[in-house]
Simulated assay, not measured.
Amino acid sequence: MFKQAILAFTAFMAMSSPADAQQSINPPLYVVRDADSTMYLYGTVHIRPRGADWGNDRVRAAITESQEVWTEIEISPAADAQAQQLAMQLGAAAPGRPLSSWLSAEENAQLAAALTGMGIPAAALEGQEPWIAALTLSVVPMMQAGFDPTSGVDRQVDVFAETGGKTMRSFETIEQQLGFFDNMAPEAQREMLREAIVQAPAAAAMITQLSNAWETGDEAALTTLVIEETRAQYPELYDLIFVQRNNAWMQVIANELNGSGVDFVAVGAGHLLGAEGLVAQLRARGYTVERVN
């Protein structure tokens, strides 16, 4: 389902209560070492319920041990403001190409129904390109169900690390991240929108499945839901989100491991998994990567 592919980029959502999460979460954490350097790899989710925990004691200890902490992009109020402005700019529909023109009459009716169910005016997305409209259809139901982007794991890692005086680093700019979607082929964007419309009513059940896999650190389930299905059904999106970005990040990671010290890398959990994931790529380069249990 394309919804899973969307969430692979924007968020894995967690549906359990904060109390349950704090008692039992065991998210994916790995470590790779050589003679003079250590790197922790933490698979994150980008949106969590308000107050839900973002890691366990092992994760906090790994950050405390580290000198540098890496996230996908810079996390700060200024970066957030830039992201909002850029999303509006890149996601604006081209003149004479409103969102409705991408869909059939039946699909436009389905879109209107989905928006009405969310309490959003039917014409609210008319001035958007398909990719950003699809993201809106994916994220809004989650926020309405009580999820908060400021509770995302990446953000909480950033707060914990900065409080501990760590040096904060990032792999990408927000321009690069949004550009992956904005540069998608028209037909891929259209399919992304169509699937987001169809899957919107099932978002809660889908997120529950994904979040349970993340909280228990179920690598097999996460690999199936996020990596294998995306690669099989949406190869272009898989290449954009995972292959190209992972390959670019690996160059940075390899350079860090060539140096010395301790680094903590916090990126979406899907980037660690699968044949093109960071864990597999490190092992292919001869590193021993261990799961921290």
Rank of each mutant, 00 (worst) to 15 (best):
V31K: 11
A92P: 05
M39N: 02
L90D: 02
I63T: 03
S66E: 03
G51L: 08
L90E: 03
S101C: 07
A92T: 13
M88E: 10
E65R: 14
T38K: 03
Y42T: 05
S100Y: 10
G91S: 07
A35S: 14
N56H: 02
T64S: 15
W102C: 03
G51C: 03
W102K: 08
E72N: 01
S100G: 10
Q67M: 10
D53W: 09
A79P: 00
A94F: 15
V59E: 08
R58C: 00
T71P: 01
S37Q: 03
V32E: 01
G43Y: 09
P77G: 12
Y42V: 01
A79N: 00
Y40N: 03
L90Y: 07
Q67N: 13
A93L: 08
P77I: 08
A35C: 11
S104G: 07
P77M: 12
A94E: 15
A92L: 12
Y30T: 00
S104F: 07
S100L: 09
Q67C: 07
M39W: 01
L41H: 00
A61M: 14
A61Q: 15
P95R: 09
A52V: 08
D80G: 03
A62H: 07
W70E: 05
R48N: 09
Q84P: 05
E72K: 07
I63K: 05
I63Q: 04
V45I: 11
M88C: 05
V31Q: 09
N56F: 05
P98W: 07
R58W: 00
P98Y: 05
L29Q: 10
P95M: 07
A87L: 14
A78G: 04
A81P: 04
L41R: 00
L29Y: 08
R58I: 02
A62Y: 02
R50Y: 04
V32C: 00
E74M: 12
T71D: 00
P27I: 14
E65M: 08
R48M: 12
N56G: 09
A94I: 12
V45Y: 13
R50Q: 07
W54Y: 03
A62E: 02
R97S: 12
L90I: 03
A79K: 04
L41Q: 02
D80Q: 13
G43M: 06
I63V: 13
P28T: 06
E65A: 15
R50S: 05
W54A: 01
I73A: 12
L41W: 02
A78D: 11
P98M: 02
G91A: 04
E65V: 10
S100H: 08
Y30A: 01
I73W: 06
Q89H: 12
D34A: 05
L29D: 06
S66I: 07
I47E: 04
E68S: 12
P95A: 07
W70R: 10
A61P: 10
D80E: 13
T64I: 13
G55S: 11
E68T: 13
I47R: 04
A52P: 02
D80F: 12
L103K: 13
R50T: 06
W102N: 06
D34N: 15
A93Y: 12
L41V: 00
A79E: 07
N26W: 15
A94G: 14
R97H: 11
V69L: 04
D57H: 13
S104Y: 03
Q85M: 14
Q82F: 14
T38M: 01
A78V: 11
A83I: 08
S104I: 02
R58E: 01
V45M: 09
A62D: 02
G96Y: 06
A79W: 01
V32I: 01
